[in-house]
Protein backbone atom coordinates (compact mmCIF):
# COMPACT_ATOMS: atom_id res chain seq x y z
CA UNK A 1 0.00 0.00 0.00
CA UNK A 2 2.61 2.52 1.10
CA UNK A 3 5.06 1.22 -1.49
CA UNK A 4 2.45 1.64 -4.22
CA UNK A 5 1.69 5.14 -3.03
CA UNK A 6 5.38 6.00 -3.02
CA UNK A 7 5.78 4.58 -6.51
CA UNK A 8 2.85 6.55 -7.86
CA UNK A 9 4.17 9.72 -6.25
CA UNK A 10 7.60 9.13 -7.78
CA UNK A 11 5.92 8.54 -11.14
CA UNK A 12 4.21 11.94 -10.97
CA UNK A 13 7.48 13.69 -10.11
CA UNK A 14 9.34 11.71 -12.77
CA UNK A 15 6.87 12.68 -15.49
CA UNK A 16 7.25 16.34 -14.53
CA UNK A 17 11.06 16.16 -14.58
CA UNK A 18 11.05 14.31 -17.90
CA UNK A 19 8.73 16.94 -19.38
CA UNK A 20 11.04 19.69 -18.14
CA UNK A 21 14.00 17.96 -19.84
CA UNK A 22 12.30 17.02 -23.11
CA UNK A 23 10.03 20.00 -23.80
CA UNK A 24 12.79 22.62 -24.28
CA UNK A 25 14.95 20.15 -26.25
CA UNK A 26 12.08 19.25 -28.57
CA UNK A 27 11.17 22.92 -28.98
CA UNK A 28 7.70 22.67 -27.39
CA UNK A 29 8.65 25.55 -25.12
CA UNK A 30 11.30 28.18 -25.72
CA UNK A 31 14.62 26.81 -24.43
CA UNK A 32 15.79 30.40 -24.03
CA UNK A 33 13.25 30.96 -21.27
CA UNK A 34 13.14 27.43 -19.84
CA UNK A 35 16.48 25.64 -20.04
CA UNK A 36 16.25 21.84 -19.78
CA UNK A 37 16.47 20.37 -16.28
CA UNK A 38 19.92 18.80 -16.85
CA UNK A 39 21.37 22.19 -17.77
CA UNK A 40 19.87 23.78 -14.64
CA UNK A 41 21.21 20.98 -12.43
CA UNK A 42 24.66 21.35 -13.96
CA UNK A 43 24.49 25.09 -13.23
CA UNK A 44 23.58 24.39 -9.58
CA UNK A 45 26.59 22.12 -9.14
CA UNK A 46 28.95 24.51 -10.92
CA UNK A 47 27.79 27.49 -8.86
CA UNK A 48 28.15 25.51 -5.63
CA UNK A 49 31.49 23.99 -6.61
CA UNK A 50 33.15 27.26 -7.64
CA UNK A 51 31.87 28.91 -4.46
CA UNK A 52 29.72 31.58 -6.10
CA UNK A 53 26.59 30.53 -4.29
CA UNK A 54 28.10 29.43 -0.97
CA UNK A 55 28.14 32.82 0.84
CA UNK A 56 24.59 33.56 -0.35
CA UNK A 57 23.37 30.19 0.89
CA UNK A 58 25.16 30.76 4.18
CA UNK A 59 23.72 34.24 4.74
CA UNK A 60 20.16 33.16 3.90
CA UNK A 61 20.29 30.19 6.24
CA UNK A 62 21.72 32.33 9.06
CA UNK A 63 19.00 34.93 8.62
CA UNK A 64 16.31 32.24 8.69
CA UNK A 65 17.82 30.54 11.76
CA UNK A 66 18.35 33.76 13.71
CA UNK A 67 14.85 35.07 12.90
CA UNK A 68 13.19 31.81 13.88
CA UNK A 69 15.14 31.45 17.13
CA UNK A 70 14.39 35.04 18.19
CA UNK A 71 10.72 34.59 17.36
CA UNK A 72 10.55 31.36 19.35
CA UNK A 73 12.45 32.91 22.25
CA UNK A 74 9.82 35.66 22.47
CA UNK A 75 6.68 33.78 21.44
CA UNK A 76 7.02 30.56 23.43
CA UNK A 77 7.35 32.16 26.90
CA UNK A 78 4.71 34.77 26.02
CA UNK A 79 2.40 32.04 24.71
CA UNK A 80 2.91 29.90 27.81
CA UNK A 81 2.12 32.86 30.05
CA UNK A 82 -0.94 33.90 28.03
CA UNK A 83 -2.21 30.35 27.71
CA UNK A 84 -1.93 29.80 31.44
CA UNK A 85 -3.45 33.20 32.28
CA UNK A 86 -7.05 32.14 31.91
CA UNK A 87 -10.10 32.88 29.84
CA UNK A 88 -10.56 36.60 30.45
CA UNK A 89 -7.01 37.64 29.62
CA UNK A 90 -7.18 35.57 26.47
CA UNK A 91 -10.39 37.14 25.33
CA UNK A 92 -8.94 40.59 25.87
CA UNK A 93 -5.72 39.83 24.05
CA UNK A 94 -7.21 37.98 21.09
CA UNK A 95 -8.29 40.99 18.96
CA UNK A 96 -4.89 42.60 19.51
CA UNK A 97 -3.03 39.49 18.38
CA UNK A 98 -5.22 39.32 15.34
CA UNK A 99 -4.53 42.92 14.34
CA UNK A 100 -0.78 42.44 14.80
CA UNK A 101 -0.85 39.20 12.86
CA UNK A 102 -2.41 41.03 9.91
CA UNK A 103 0.23 43.74 9.83
CA UNK A 104 2.10 43.05 6.65
CA UNK A 105 5.81 42.37 7.32
CA UNK A 106 6.83 44.15 4.14
CA UNK A 107 5.08 47.34 5.15
CA UNK A 108 7.07 47.13 8.39
CA UNK A 109 10.38 46.85 6.62
CA UNK A 110 10.77 50.63 6.15
CA UNK A 111 10.03 51.08 9.86
CA UNK A 112 12.54 48.47 10.94
CA UNK A 113 15.07 50.18 8.69
CA UNK A 114 14.33 53.42 10.56
CA UNK A 115 14.85 51.77 13.92
CA UNK A 116 17.73 49.41 13.25
CA UNK A 117 19.41 51.05 10.26
CA UNK A 118 20.49 49.29 7.08
CA UNK A 119 21.91 45.90 7.81
CA UNK A 120 21.31 42.46 9.12
CA UNK A 121 19.42 43.45 12.27
CA UNK A 122 16.52 44.95 10.29
CA UNK A 123 16.28 41.82 8.14
CA UNK A 124 16.35 39.47 11.09
CA UNK A 125 13.76 41.62 12.91
CA UNK A 126 11.35 41.38 9.98
CA UNK A 127 11.86 37.62 9.81
CA UNK A 128 11.29 37.30 13.55
CA UNK A 129 8.08 39.35 13.24
CA UNK A 130 6.79 37.09 10.45
CA UNK A 131 7.25 33.86 12.37
CA UNK A 132 6.32 35.28 15.79
CA UNK A 133 2.55 35.20 15.30
CA UNK A 134 2.05 31.59 14.19
CA UNK A 135 4.27 30.39 17.05
CA UNK A 136 2.40 32.52 19.57
CA UNK A 137 -1.02 31.37 18.34
CA UNK A 138 -0.07 27.70 18.41
CA UNK A 139 1.59 27.97 21.84
CA UNK A 140 -1.46 29.63 23.40
CA UNK A 141 -3.71 27.04 21.76
CA UNK A 142 -1.43 24.22 22.90
CA UNK A 143 -1.37 25.35 26.53
CA UNK A 144 -5.12 25.80 26.57
CA UNK A 145 -5.73 22.31 25.24
CA UNK A 146 -3.41 20.52 27.70
CA UNK A 147 -5.26 17.73 29.46
CA UNK A 148 -6.48 19.19 32.77
CA UNK A 149 -5.91 15.80 34.43
CA UNK A 150 -2.16 16.24 33.85
CA UNK A 151 -2.18 19.72 35.34
CA UNK A 152 -4.27 18.63 38.33
CA UNK A 153 -2.15 15.60 39.13
CA UNK A 154 1.00 17.70 38.86
CA UNK A 155 -0.49 20.18 41.29
CA UNK A 156 -1.57 17.46 43.69
CA UNK A 157 2.00 16.14 43.62
CA UNK A 158 3.16 19.57 44.67
CA UNK A 159 5.04 20.44 41.46
CA UNK A 160 5.65 24.19 41.31
CA UNK A 161 7.89 26.87 39.82
CA UNK A 162 10.39 25.98 37.10
CA UNK A 163 9.75 22.26 37.57
CA UNK A 164 6.10 22.85 36.73
CA UNK A 165 6.91 25.07 33.77
CA UNK A 166 9.70 23.00 32.16
CA UNK A 167 8.68 19.59 33.45
CA UNK A 168 4.92 19.70 32.93
CA UNK A 169 3.51 22.61 30.95
CA UNK A 170 6.18 22.86 28.27
CA UNK A 171 6.34 19.14 27.44
CA UNK A 172 2.56 18.83 27.47
CA UNK A 173 2.20 21.70 24.99
CA UNK A 174 5.37 20.85 23.06
CA UNK A 175 3.65 19.22 20.11
CA UNK A 176 1.50 22.28 19.43
CA UNK A 177 4.50 24.56 19.92
CA UNK A 178 6.52 22.68 17.31
CA UNK A 179 3.57 22.80 14.93
CA UNK A 180 3.66 26.57 15.37
CA UNK A 181 7.43 26.69 14.87
CA UNK A 182 7.05 24.72 11.65
CA UNK A 183 4.28 27.02 10.38
CA UNK A 184 6.34 30.07 11.35
CA UNK A 185 9.48 28.65 9.75
CA UNK A 186 7.68 27.99 6.49
CA UNK A 187 6.25 31.50 6.38
CA UNK A 188 9.62 32.95 7.32
CA UNK A 189 11.49 31.25 4.49
CA UNK A 190 8.74 32.30 2.11
CA UNK A 191 9.14 35.93 3.13
CA UNK A 192 12.92 35.84 3.49
CA UNK A 193 13.44 35.33 -0.23
CA UNK A 194 11.10 38.24 -0.96
CA UNK A 195 12.82 40.49 1.55
CA UNK A 196 16.21 39.68 0.07
CA UNK A 197 14.94 40.61 -3.36
CA UNK A 198 13.69 44.00 -2.18
CA UNK A 199 16.60 45.23 -0.16
CA UNK A 200 19.72 43.17 0.49
CA UNK A 201 23.26 42.86 -0.77
CA UNK A 202 23.52 39.10 -0.41
CA UNK A 203 21.45 35.98 0.02
CA UNK A 204 19.73 33.51 -2.28
CA UNK A 205 16.86 35.91 -2.98
CA UNK A 206 19.28 38.66 -3.92
CA UNK A 207 21.24 36.25 -6.12
CA UNK A 208 18.09 35.29 -8.01
CA UNK A 209 17.02 38.91 -8.36
CA UNK A 210 20.47 39.86 -9.65
CA UNK A 211 20.45 36.97 -12.13
CA UNK A 212 17.06 38.15 -13.37
CA UNK A 213 18.27 41.74 -13.68
CA UNK A 214 21.19 40.48 -15.77
CA UNK A 215 19.03 38.14 -17.87
CA UNK A 216 21.03 35.07 -16.76
CA UNK A 217 18.11 32.72 -17.17
CA UNK A 218 19.85 29.47 -16.27
CA UNK A 219 21.01 31.09 -13.04
CA UNK A 220 17.42 32.11 -12.20
CA UNK A 221 16.34 28.49 -12.42
CA UNK A 222 19.43 27.22 -10.61
CA UNK A 223 18.94 29.60 -7.68
CA UNK A 224 15.23 28.80 -7.69
CA UNK A 225 15.92 25.08 -7.48
CA UNK A 226 18.32 25.61 -4.60
CA UNK A 227 15.77 27.78 -2.76
CA UNK A 228 13.21 25.04 -3.25
CA UNK A 229 15.57 22.42 -1.81
CA UNK A 230 16.48 24.64 1.17
CA UNK A 231 12.81 25.29 1.92
CA UNK A 232 12.03 21.58 1.73
CA UNK A 233 14.98 20.70 4.01
CA UNK A 234 13.97 23.33 6.57
CA UNK A 235 10.40 22.09 6.57
CA UNK A 236 11.59 18.48 6.77
CA UNK A 237 13.81 19.22 9.77
CA UNK A 238 11.05 21.08 11.62
CA UNK A 239 8.56 18.34 10.74
CA UNK A 240 10.94 15.73 12.21
CA UNK A 241 10.99 17.72 15.44
CA UNK A 242 7.21 17.96 15.35
CA UNK A 243 6.85 14.18 15.00
CA UNK A 244 9.40 13.27 17.64
CA UNK A 245 9.12 16.02 20.21
CA UNK A 246 12.24 15.75 22.37
CA UNK A 247 10.47 16.50 25.66
CA UNK A 248 8.72 14.11 28.00
CA UNK A 249 6.60 15.09 30.95
CA UNK A 250 8.59 14.60 34.13
CA UNK A 251 11.92 15.61 35.65
CA UNK A 252 13.84 14.47 32.54
CA UNK A 253 11.78 16.84 30.40
CA UNK A 254 13.35 19.68 32.34
CA UNK A 255 16.82 18.52 31.38
CA UNK A 256 15.89 18.22 27.71
CA UNK A 257 14.38 21.72 27.64
CA UNK A 258 17.51 23.16 29.28
CA UNK A 259 19.77 21.34 26.85
CA UNK A 260 17.82 22.55 23.80
CA UNK A 261 17.93 26.11 25.10
CA UNK A 262 21.71 25.95 25.60
CA UNK A 263 22.27 24.50 22.14
CA UNK A 264 20.14 27.24 20.56
CA UNK A 265 22.08 29.99 22.34
CA UNK A 266 25.43 28.49 21.35
CA UNK A 267 24.33 28.11 17.74
CA UNK A 268 22.91 31.62 17.31
CA UNK A 269 25.49 33.64 19.22
CA UNK A 270 27.90 33.76 16.25
CA UNK A 271 25.06 34.29 13.75
CA UNK A 272 25.52 38.03 13.31
CA UNK A 273 29.28 37.68 12.90
CA UNK A 274 28.82 34.95 10.33
CA UNK A 275 26.35 37.09 8.39
CA UNK A 276 28.72 40.05 8.38
CA UNK A 277 31.54 37.84 7.17
CA UNK A 278 29.41 36.42 4.35
CA UNK A 279 28.26 39.90 3.35
CA UNK A 280 31.85 41.12 3.25
CA UNK A 281 32.85 38.14 1.13
CA UNK A 282 30.10 38.85 -1.37
CA UNK A 283 31.20 42.47 -1.57
CA UNK A 284 34.81 41.51 -2.31
CA UNK A 285 33.77 38.85 -4.82
CA UNK A 286 31.59 41.26 -6.78
CA UNK A 287 32.71 44.82 -5.98
CA UNK A 288 29.69 46.32 -7.71
CA UNK A 289 27.34 43.51 -8.49
CA UNK A 290 24.53 45.47 -10.00
CA UNK A 291 26.77 47.19 -12.52
CA UNK A 292 28.56 44.13 -13.88
CA UNK A 293 26.69 42.62 -16.76
CA UNK A 294 29.30 40.01 -17.55
CA UNK A 295 27.05 37.80 -19.59
CA UNK A 296 27.17 36.68 -23.21
CA UNK A 297 25.85 38.93 -25.92
CA UNK A 298 22.05 38.94 -26.09
CA UNK A 299 20.66 36.79 -28.88
CA UNK A 300 18.43 38.27 -31.59
CA UNK A 301 15.46 36.71 -29.78
CA UNK A 302 16.30 38.60 -26.61
CA UNK A 303 16.66 41.86 -28.48
CA UNK A 304 13.38 41.39 -30.26
CA UNK A 305 11.66 40.62 -26.98
CA UNK A 306 13.20 43.58 -25.23
CA UNK A 307 12.19 45.95 -28.00
CA UNK A 308 8.66 44.55 -27.82
CA UNK A 309 8.59 45.20 -24.10
CA UNK A 310 9.70 48.76 -24.51
CA UNK A 311 7.26 49.54 -27.26
CA UNK A 312 4.40 47.81 -25.50
CA UNK A 313 4.09 44.98 -28.04
CA UNK A 314 3.80 47.06 -31.21
Amino acid sequence: MTAGKLLRGALGLGVFCAFWEIAPRAGWIDAQFTPPLSKVLRAVFTLLADGTLVPHLEVSLWRAAAGLVIAAAVAVPAGLALGAAGERVNRAIEPLLRVFGQVNPFSLMPLFLLFFGLGEVAHVAVMAWVSLWPILRHTVGGVRSVDTAILRSARSMGVRGPAWLFGVLLPAAAHAIFTGVRAGGGLLFFMLIGAEMIGAGAGLGWFLHNAAANYQITRIYAAGLLILVCGALLDGALAAFERRVPFRIGPRGMGAAGLLLTVIVIVTAPAIQAMDRANAQVMTDHPSCHETHNQPEPTPDDLERLSKEFTGGH
Binding site: R8, G12, I220, Y221
Partner: peptide
Protein backbone atom coordinates in the same frame (compact mmCIF):
# COMPACT_ATOMS: atom_id res chain seq x y z
CA UNK B 1 -4.33 12.18 -6.54
CA UNK B 2 -1.57 9.85 -5.27
CA UNK B 3 0.39 10.41 -8.48
CA UNK B 4 0.07 14.18 -8.25
CA UNK B 5 0.40 14.87 -4.52
CA UNK B 6 4.22 14.77 -4.14
CA UNK B 7 4.66 16.89 -7.27
CA UNK B 8 2.07 19.37 -6.03
CA UNK B 9 3.77 19.53 -2.64
CA UNK B 10 7.07 20.39 -4.28
CA UNK B 11 5.41 23.02 -6.48
CA UNK B 12 3.52 24.47 -3.52
CA UNK B 13 6.81 24.80 -1.65
CA UNK B 14 8.23 26.76 -4.61
CA UNK B 15 8.71 30.27 -3.38
CA UNK B 16 6.27 32.71 -5.05
CA UNK B 17 9.02 35.28 -5.52
CA UNK B 18 11.07 33.00 -7.70
CA UNK B 19 7.94 32.23 -9.67
CA UNK B 20 7.50 35.97 -10.10
CA UNK B 21 10.78 36.16 -12.01
CA UNK B 22 9.91 33.17 -14.18
Amino acid sequence: AECCTPLFMVLAAANPFLLFHV
